[in-house]
Design a protein around this nucleic acid. Structure first.
Length: 862
RNA sequence: GGGCGCUUAGCUCAGUUGGUCAAGAGCGCCGCCCUUACAAGGCGGAGGUCGCUGGUUCGAGCCCAGCAGCGCCCACCA
C-alpha cells in the first residue's frame, strides 16, 4: 500500500510493461477453442502489413477493438481477438527491393527463389515489430495464436478458394484492358487507382479522309494515335453524320480508320469526332470490342513505345508525344490547356497506363448478390447506416476483379502451363515440362479469407466452430470495398456464413491542421511517441517532445476522438485521458488506505449523498455498457470522465471526507463504488485500473479477468439524485458569490439556510461551500439565491458590497428574464393544451421556484 | 456528373427518439486558493444570433426545403 500512497502520479512508463507482462503470463488473452460462436465472442484484427509500423489508424482501430474485447471478456464470454499480419505483397517486396538496391543489385539479378527467400528472412527479422507495438497499446490480442497470410495453412485456404472458383467458372484468364502500373510493372485493380487532377494540353488533330476532306479529333495523348483503329461520331450529330461509313487515314501511319457511329461520343465536347484507341483507353476498348475493331498496342509494359510505333519505337511515351506532335506539323490544329482527372496508382504514385494484358480475373456479380442480401437483411449490420448504402451501391455496380499481379512475393497462382495445356490445382501436376504461372494473387485476395482462414478453414477445426462467425469487424472507411465487402462475399461462399455480424466503420484521424496524416508530409503522429514522450512532428509548431502520456491516455484520447466522421487529431483529448488516469490513481490513493481492516465492498448508504453516488454509479455502468454496445466510443470515454471527475471525485469524495475515517459503512460504500468504477473504466484505461486493482483489498486475480459490474436496479434513486442536484446548485451559488464579493474561499462563514427541503443536505452544503450554520438569527448581510430559497450570510469581514450589489442585480435580471420566459410559455394555450402534462408541470414547478428565488433575493435588501 | 457527410465558445469536439438545454466538455483566457488524494490540482468566471433563409410545430441546435462554405466517396467525357 505504501507504494500506492507514495506516488502522486500514475507512472505509465514504469507500470505498463509490468502490467502487460502479468496479462500475458496469465493466459487470459488466449481462450481455448470451446463452445459455439454464438456464445463466444471474437474479433479478427484487420491484419497490419508485416512491413508496418504502428500508426494512428492502427492505434485508434486497436483502442476500439480492445475496448470491445475487454468488455466482452468481462461479460464472461470466451473471447478471442484473432491476431496476425498480412504479407502485403507490394509493400513488402518494395522493402526488400530497396535493400537490394542499397547493395547494388536487383531482384532480377538475384533471381526469384533467392529473392523470396530473402523476403522471408526480412520478415523473420522485422515482421514482429508491429505486433510488439500493439502490446504497447495494451491490446489484448491472442498473441499465442498469431497468423500470417503466407503460413502453410493459410496458403492451403487461398489455393483451395482459387481452384474452386476456377472450377466454378468465376475465375478466368483473359486478354483484357487493365490498369497497368508502370512503376510497379504490374497490373493493379480498379480500387488501387485514384483520380488526380492534372492540366494537360488538349490537341486537335486533323485526319484526312479517304477521297478528300478531313475531320478533326481531340486528344491529350497524341502518342496513342499510332494505335488508333477507328474514328467514332455520334449518330445524332448533324455535323458529322455524313462521315459515318467513310474512312479516315491515320496520319504518320497511313492506316485506314473506319468511321463508326456510337452513342458514347458526346456532341458537345471536343470536336465531336473521337479517335478510337482500343489498346490504350478503357472506353475505346469497350467501343472497340462492341464494334469488333482491331486492338493495336504501341506502348509496352515497360512504358516505352513498341515496334508498332514505327519510327517512335523505343521512346518513352512522353517523349514520343512530343515527337508525334512535331511530326504532325500543320495537322495539329489547336492546343488548349485542359484540366481534368486522370488515373494514378495508389501504390507507386505513377500515372496508370491502360493496357491490354493477359491476366487472371474474377467475376464478381454472382458473389456480390448474397453479400448484398446479407446486409439488406441485417445479417451483417454496418454502422453507421450511410456506409451500408455505400457498400450496397458498390456491390450492385461491381465489375470483374483483376487478381493477378506481376510480383514475386505472395501467393503464386496455382496454374501450370505446358504448350497449349493448362492445369489448375492445389498441387503441381504430374509429369514433366509444366511451367507454373509466374504471377501472384492480389494481396486482397488472401485478405478476403482472413476471418476463417485464420481459424483453420478449410478444415473443420475447433477454432472455426468456436469463433466463426466473428462478432464485429472494426475498420476505417477506406477499405470497405477493398476488404470488407470481399470478406462477406468469400465468407458466404466458402464457410457458408457471414464473417461477422457487425461492421463498425470508424473515423480517419487527420493531422491537427486538417491535412492527411502522412510521414512524408510531416503530418504523421506516431502513437508510440505519444505514449512514451517522443518528438513532436513538424505539424505541431511548438516543437519539442510530447509528455509521456501513457497508453491509457492515448487510448482514451483516441476513443474520445472517434466518430463516424473524420476528425482532426486533438492532443487535448490525449491530455484529458492522462488527467483521467491520474485522477483515478489519486482517488484510489486516497480511498484505499482509509478503508479499515476487514471492511468489504458493499452498498451501505447512510445519507442521501451515499444513495446519490450509488444511484449515479448504476447510471454510469449502464451508460458505459450502452455506449460500447452501440459502438459510441466517444460517449464511453467522455461519460467515464464526467462520472469520475464530476460525480465521484469533485463531489462524493469531497462530501464524504469527514465521515470516512470512522464509519465502516462509508468505507464499504466508497470501496464498492471505487471497485466498480475501476471495472467499468477498464476497457478504456486498462493499465491504470489494473495496477490499482492489485491494491484493492479482496480483489482477486486480474481486473481484466474479473466480471463486469451489473446494474443493481434497487440502488437507482431518482429522489436522491434530485436532492443532491439541488445541493450542488446551492454549493455552486455560494461559491460564486464568495468569489464575486472577494471573500476568500477558506474561512467558514456563519450563515442561515432560508430554504425548505434542505434538511438532509445542509451539512454537505456547509462543508463544500465553507459555511457554518448559525443557530441564532443575526443580521443577514447578504442572501445568496439557491434553488427554492436562499442562503443568508450572517456576518463577515470585508465583503465587497459593490460587487455584491452588482452580482445580485445581475441575478435579478437573469431570474426576471427566466420568469418572463416561463410565464410566456405557460400563457401559451397551445403549450398547456398540447404539451405532455409532465412537461407542463415541470415548467410550473420551475416558475414557482424562480419566483421564490427572486423573492428571497429582493427580501434580502440591497 | 452523381451520392454522402459536415458547419455549435478563440481551438478541437459532445449534444442519443424535438421539451429535463436558463446550450456542454477539454484546451486556451481571467480571478481566487499550495484546503492533509491529486498544483499535470481545486474553486469561480468571461466567451456562443448553434453557417444563412424560409417552413413544420404549442415548442427547433435537433425535423423539412432552399442557399453558402468545407470535406469525402463513386463515375469511361476524348
Amino acid at each position: 500500500m505504501s507504494e500506492l500512497e507514495s506516488r502522486k502520479r500514475f507512472e505509465p512508463r514504469e507500470v505498463e510493461p509490468r502490467v502487460m507482462r502479468r496479462w500475458l503470463d496469465s493466459g487470459l488473452f488466449h481462450p481455448e477453442p470451446e463452445g459455439s460462436a454464438a456464445e463466444n465472442s471474437s474479433i479478427a484484427i484487420p491484419p497490419p502489413n508485416v512491413t508496418g509500423a504502428l500508426h494512428m489508424g492502427h492505434a485508434l482501430n486497436g483502442a476500439i477493438q480492445d475496448a470491445l474485447i475487454r468488455f466482452h471478456r468481462m461479460l464472461g464470454q470466451r473471447t478471442k481477438w484473432i491476431l496476425g499480419t498480412d504479407h502485403a505483397g507490394i509493400a513488402t517486396q518494395r522493402q526488400v527491393e530497396k535493400q537490394l538496391e542499397a547493395e547494388g543489385t536487383t531482384r532480377e539479378q538475384v533471381g526469384r527463389e533467392a529473392f523470396v527467400e530473402r523476403v522471408w528472412r526480412w520478415r523473420e527479422e522485422y515482421g514482429g515489430t508491429i505486433i510488439e507495438q500493439f502490446k504497447r497499446l495494451g491490446a489484448s490480442c491472442d498473441y499465442d495464436d498469431e497468423r500470417f497470410t503466407l503460413d502453410d495453412g493459410y496458403v492451403e485456404a487461398v489455393l483451395k478458394v482459387f481452384v474452386d472458383l476456377y472450377e466454378q467458372g468465376l475465375i478466368y484468364r483473359d486478354n483484357y484492358m487493365v490498369n497497368w502500373d508502370p512503376g510497379l510493372r504490374s497490373a493493379i485493380s480498379d480500387l488501387e487507382v485514384e483520380q488526380r487532377e492534372v492540366t494537360d494540353v488538349l490537341y486537335e488533330i486533323a485526319y484526312p479522309l479517304a477521297g478528300g476532306g478531313e475531320l478533326v479529333v481531340a486528344t491529350v495523348r497524341p502518342e496513342t494515335m499510332l494505335a488508333d483503329t477507328a474514328v467514332a461520331v455520334n449518330p445524332d450529330d448533324e455535323r458529322h453524320r455524313h462521315l459515318i461509313g467513310r474512312t479516315a487515314i491515320l496520319p504518320l501511319v497511313g492506316r485506314e480508320l473506319p468511321i463508326i457511329a456510337d452513342e458514347y461520343v458526346k456532341t458537345d465536347f471536343g470536336t465531336g469526332c473521337l479517335k478510337i484507341t482500343p489498346g490504350h483507353d478503357p472506353n475505346d476498348f469497350e467501343i472497340g470490342r462492341k464494334h469488333g475493331l482491331a486492338e493495336v498496342t504501341v506502348i509496352g509494359e515497360d512504358g516505352l513505345m513498341n515496334a508498332n510505333a514505327g519510327e517512335f519505337a523505343g521512346l518513352p511515351a512522353l517523349e514520343a508525344r512530343k515527337r508525334v506532335v512535331q511530326a504532325l506539323g500543320d495537322a495539329v490544329r489547336a492546343r488548349t490547356h485542359y484540366h481534368h482527372e486522370v488515373p494514378y496508382s495508389q501504390r507507386s504514385g505513377e500515372r496508370v497506363e491502360p493496357l491490354i494484358s493477359l491476366q487472371w480475373f474474377m467475376r464478381m456479380d454472382e458473389l456480390a448478390r448474397p453479400a448484398i442480401d446479407a446486409v439488406r437483411e441485417g445479417r451483417v449490420r454496418i454502422h453507421p447506416e450511410s456506409q451500408a448504402r455505400r457498400y450496397v451501391e458498390w456491390l450492385e455496380n461491381i465489375r470483374p476483379w483483376c487478381i493477378s499481379r506481376q510480383l514475386w512475393w505472395g501467393h503464386q497462382i496455382p496454374v501450370w502451363y505446358r504448350g497449349e495445356e493448362t492445369y489448375v490445382g492445389t498441387t503441381p501436376p504430374e509429369g514433366d515440362g509444366w511451367e507454373r504461372d509466374p504471377d501472384v494473387l492480389d494481396t486482397w485476395f488472401s485478405s478476403a479469407l482472413w476471418p476463417f482462414a485464420t481459424l483453420g478453414w478449410p478444415h473443420d477445426t475447433p477454432e472455426l466452430r468456436a469463433f466463426y462467425p466473428t462478432d464485429v469487424l472494426v475498420t476505417a472507411r477506406d477499405i470497405l470495398f477493398l476488404w470488407v465487402a470481399r470478406m462477406v462475399m468469400m465468407g458466404l461462399r466458402f464457410p457458408g456464413d457471414v464473417p461477422f455480424t457487425d461492421v463498425y466503420v470508424h473515423s480517419v484521424i487527420q493531422a491537427p491542421d486538417g491535412r492527411r496524416m502522412s510521414k512524408s508530409l510531416g503530418t504523421g503522429i506516431d502513437p508510440l511517441d505519444l505514449i512514451a514522450g517522443g518528438p513532436r512532428p513538424p505539424v505541431f509548431q511548438q516543437g519539442g517532445t510530447f509528455p509521456s502520456y501513457g497508453a491509457d491516455a492515448v487510448r482514451f484520447g483516441l476513443l474520445a476522438m472517434s466518430s463516424t466522421q473524420d476528425v482532426r487529431f486533438s492532443e487535448e483529448k490525449i491530455h484529458q485521458g492522462a488527467q483521467l488516469a491520474t485522477k483515478v490513481w489519486n482517488a484510489s490513493r486516497f480511498v484505499l488506505p482509509r478503508v479499515g481492516e476487514g471492511v468489504r465492498a458493499a452498498a451501505r448508504p447512510q445519507t442521501v449523498e451515499d444513495r446519490w453516488i450509488l444511484s449515479r454509479l448504476q447510471y454510469a455502468k449502464r451508460a458505459m455498457r450502452r455506449a460500447l454496445d452501440a459502438f459510441e466510443f466517444h460517449h464511453a470515454a467522455l461519460g467515464l470522465y464526467d462520472f469520475v471527475f464530476g460525480e465521484l471525485c469533485d463531489r462524493y469524495i469531497e462530501l464524504v471526507k469527514p465521515r470516512l475515517e470512522d464509519e465502516p459503512d462509508v468505507q464499504a460504500t466508497l470501496l464498492l463504488v471505487l471497485r466498480e468504477t475501476l471495472a467499468l473504466a477498464h476497457p478504456v484505461i486498462p493499465f491504470v485500473t489494473e495496477e490499482i486493482w492489485s491494491h484493492v483489498p479482496e480483489a482477486e486475480g486480474l481486473l481484466a479477468g474479473s466480471r463486469w459490474p451489473e446494474v443493481d436496479e434497487s440502488l437507482i434513486d431518482p429522489e436522491a439524485e434530485a436532492a443532491v442536484e439541488r445541493q450542488f446548485a446551492a454549493v455552486q451559488a455560494v461559491r460564486a458569490w464568495r468569489d464575486a464579493v472577494r471573500v476568500p474561499p477558506g474561512p467558514r462563514l456563519p450563515a442561515r439556510l432560508d430554504a425548505p427541503g434542505y434538511e438532509q443536505l445542509a451539512d454537505g452544503i456547509a462543508l463544500l461551500a465553507r459555511l457554518e450554520w448559525s443557530p441564532d438569527g443575526g443580521d443577514a448581510i447578504a442572501a445568496v439565491p439557491i434553488p427554492g430559497g436562499a442562503v443568508a450570510v450572517l456576518a463577515t469581514e470585508a465583503v465587497d458590497l459593490e460587487a455584491d450589489r452588482k452580482l445580485r442585480e445581475q441575478q435579478r435580471r437573469t431570474l426576471r428574464a427566466e420568469i418572463a420566459r416561463a410565464e410566456g410559455k405557460l400563457a401559451n394555450e397551445g403549450f398547456v393544451a398540447k404539451a405532455p402534462e409532465r412537461v407542463v408541470q415541470a415548467e410550473r414547478d420551475k416558475l414557482e421556484q424562480l419566483r421564490r428565488e427572486l423573492a428571497e433575493l429582493d427580501g434580502a435588501g440591497g
